[in-house]
Write a protein that binds this DNA or RNA. Structure first.
Lengths: 347, 347
DNA sequence: TTGAAAGCGCTAACAT
DNA sequence: ATGTTAGCGCTTTCAA
């Protein structure tokens, strides 16, 4: 039998208003009564009806804020697309999304963006932000105060939050190693081009990569590890230099963005037999895979990430979720020429 | 500005009841009035509010039927899981799913299953069924009569329907070929083990496979093509026989189910250097990839297929969708050891 | 053929 | 501190 506010109120011997106050911690209710209602709600398995909620609160939408370091970064556009899809889908259930786009990964900028989202009345936040102690502290503080926090695309260590929605970077790295093991039998001399040693995801991609190479007993050495800071120009320069200095390199592992820059260096150097691999499906990487410069990319379904982060946050605010919410980890998708050049799937 | 039944009624100078009658073709309305309302609805861009609909029609849920040839077939269990997820998620919006499970691919059995679903009052059908003219005819007939039809996992040729939700088998086959091109440089002597020449999906997997081998100028020949009828026992027997007869075979392409049977034959034959590849992530294929008997499988996200088929059907019945609905094609996912043995993603 | 009104589950404003 | 009520958008029933 379905449990409604009405039936709950009846069971507890109080009015619907009181039940509402208890369930949403608003207004004053005698402690004893509150306890009774809460207990009963759990026992009877009360789950609020989204339709009812949406209809009633039509004029007070559920505002969800999203922070994206997307300015000048094509990758995040796909996450934003997913955010928009969720916004459209849940609009008639009372969802409203406030998107805050910033440039780069400056801690202070991100903290201020969060403040501005809160000032606009957001009851939940989806954050793609930096992995620093100050951010972690702020996130914990907000979470403990009751704000729903979803970490999006890139996790922040040591935080309490609703959940993380994004890629499993360790598996992504391991998958690259596994593909390498499948494709090459000769000894590997590897150049690693990372984005930044400060970005958790990039580090995990390298860690997972090495771990899997070791697990499969691949014969390899890391010739060098260089940073591109996700700048194509820098990536090209630094990659080209190392390639020239180390002609034995036969594999380039691009752990960060700036795949385009590395590709240019490979072309400039005329490296035919270098097995290059990278991440994410963007215009640039698609071109490079098509041309055979990069053999494959490992992708993380950014659009789904955006969609599900918003969805999770909405569900949490609407009271649809239980106490413990699992992380949402997107698939680790290998794209070679054959499945990259064909049409893109839904959502 | 948001358009409601109320505002529409006002604009058309009629009552809400009349608008409802027009929009749902129920009850008698003067032709002239109906035309006016319909035109206005389109002009103003009226989209029904799910919340309102769900609440009002609480006692007449949207019944959606699903037909699955899942009896004794592990693969379909994952699709069913997706169906269940959708059912739970949309329950409070008035969705009710009626699942009809049948055994095998007998045309008559499937036709009768469809009848039984309709008899139960289903306003939409999600069908995983056989690709035969009689089914196509029935589907077209139902579609033209206004029943929402979603074809699920396996398409039926020459049909009118809302959309297809499932894998792109051509791309899946091509992806196998692409991986082969990446992993092997020697001449390929290929044995193809298909499920049935009558199943569209299996044929397309073979077609896509060959096309991509040709496109990439791979040096290969097809030693033989045998049918397993998706039976592991038969697959083992027939595969073993061919392997014994043709020691030059260095690649086995398993286009149908019964991967387990082929695996057994490979083990029995002691084929170390045979590069075997197959489809779908199941208990059996996971074991075989882990053991290195099969190098990778190409997967099609069956859980998402079930989920989205139901979702699409629900949206269509609830009037959320426009006139033309695109197919929902799931990702073509390569799973090697490294990304197979790790945790499974959400939804 | 059309209009009017009740009520679905919930929240917010008002009343006690 | 608690109860009562109006109303969100829609469907359905009853009345005209």
């Amino acid at each position: 039998m379905k449990v409604t506010v009405k039936s709950l109120a009846q069971a507890a011997g109080v009015s619907r208003g009181t039940v509402d106050r208890v369930l949403h911690n608003r207004g004053a209710v005698k402690d004893e009564v509150a306890k009774r209602v809460r207990l009963l709600a759990k026992e009877l398995g009360y789950v609020p009806n989204r339709a009812g909620r949406a209809l009633a609160a039509y004029k007070t939408p559920i505002k969800i804020g999203a922070l994206m370091p997307s300015v000048g970064n094509a990758f995040y556009q796909e996450i934003i697309q997913g955010i928009n899809e969720a916004q459209n889908e849940f609009a008639d259930l009372g969802l409203e999304v406030v998107l805050k786009e910033v440039e780069g990964f400056d801690e202070q900028v991100h903290l201020e963006a969060i403040d501005s989202l809160l000032k606009k009345g957001c009851r939940a936040l989806c954050l793609a932000t930096v992995n620093t102690p100050r951010l972690a502290e702020r996130i914990n503080e907000l979470h403990d105060r009751g704000t729903v926090i979803v970490l999006l695309n890139t996790d922040v260590e040591n935080t309490r939050r609703l959940c993380y929605v994004g890629s499993d970077y360790l598996t992504a790295g391991a998958t690259c190693a596994g593909m390498l093991a499948l494709a090459r039998q000769d000894k590997l001399h590897i150049l690693i081009v990372t984005g930044s040693r400060l970005l958790l995801g990039h580090n995990l991609r390298i860690k997972g990569f090495k771990e899997e190479l070791d697990r499969q007993n691949i014969d390899y050495d890391i010739v060098d590890t260089v940073e591109s800071f996700d700048s194509d120009i820098r990536a090209q320069q630094v990659t080209y230099k190392v390639l020239k200095a180390h002609s034995e390199i036969n594999c380039v592992y691009i752990a960060g963005a700036a795949v385009q820059g590395v590709g240019s260096a490979l072309i400039a150097n005329g490296s035919k037999d270098v097995f290059a691999i990278g991440f994410d499906e963007l215009y640039s990487t698609r071109q490079l895979v098509s041309a055979g410069i990069i053999k494959f990319v490992v992708c993380q379904q950014p659009t789904r990430q955006g969609y599900h982060a918003i969805k999770r946050a909405y569900q949490a605010v609407a009271g649809q979720l239980g106490d413990s919410v699992p992380d949402f980890i997107t698939d680790t998708i290998i794209k070679i020429k054959a499945n990259l050049e064909r049409t893109v799937p839904g959502r």
